[in-house]
Amino acid sequence: MSNSQVIDCDFDYYSPKTVEEALEYLKSEGVKVLAGGTDLLNDIKTGEIVPKALVSILGINELDFVEFEHGFRIGPATLLCKIEEDDRIKKKYPALCEAVNSMGGMQIRNMATLGGNLCTASPGADAAPPLIVLNAKVEVSRKNGRGEIERRTLPIEEFFTGPKKTVLEQGELLTSILIPEPDASSGSAFIKIGRVKLDIAKINCAVYVKGEGDICKNVRISLGAVAPKPVRAFNVEKALAGKKLTASLLAEAAEMVSQDISPRNARSTAVYKTQAASVLIQDTLTTAWNRSGAGREVKE
């Protein structure tokens, strides 16, 4: 039985001011990144993680930013509450805001970071589906043998490799999240189903859709907690792309989600998740579609 009252293992603690310094600490085995701590400290208390040292990244200014100058970039150490409060994000990327708002109580969102949610890589991580449908990329940094910082950028879909697993290796740090400008007459939305309103997802869903008249020009759908990592609903997308969006088409297409997911009985049943996924896609896509242009609605 775990003991959530105290942490009974010792570790070192560092709070670097620069990415360069942080990367140096992170080279050693057993050194973990501490951001908001809302997942990591639980894992330490339950004994799932026994760190040698923690590197707190909340004091690194280079990692805490929201900027719109060269495309939209968010620093991984940005607190969730700052994303929620940012009207520019709310307007352009409502799916991301909705996902962030659904994460935990006010206190959690005041502590936890966007990067933390991604790096924990829970199959139901709420920030993942919106970033996936928004075509986000992540920048990963490390120090090479010569002590220089090397950066690589990859699509967020490739960042997750399995339950609680990412491409990050020891010594690497997520340093930026880049989200392209959404197309004109596009919309996005996020909806989650939990056991109660405040919960980790039983299943969650984000949709990005661009319309041309009543044609569904471009659609991306992503779901969480229905597979070892967040997935795209490619079969559903294919059935919708380039077609006139009607309720019956949407219902028919959404059924195909069963080919895109492989749910387990976590927090629900696989059968329920499959049935709910279809409904959730329809609901989320309808909301995104309504946002994609004035007067747009899904017709019967």
Binding site: S4, Y13, L34, G36, G37, T38, N42, G104, I108
Partner: peptide, 24 residues
């Protein structure tokens, strides 16, 4: 609860409510 679910440990840190059970 010790794991950030109940809020009984809430304090205000720099103007924002946070959980002291999940803060070093």
């Amino acid at each position: 609860c010790g794991i950030g679910e109940c809020g009984a440990c809430t304090v205000i840190l720099n103007g924002r409510a946070i959980l002291s059970c999940q803060t070093l």
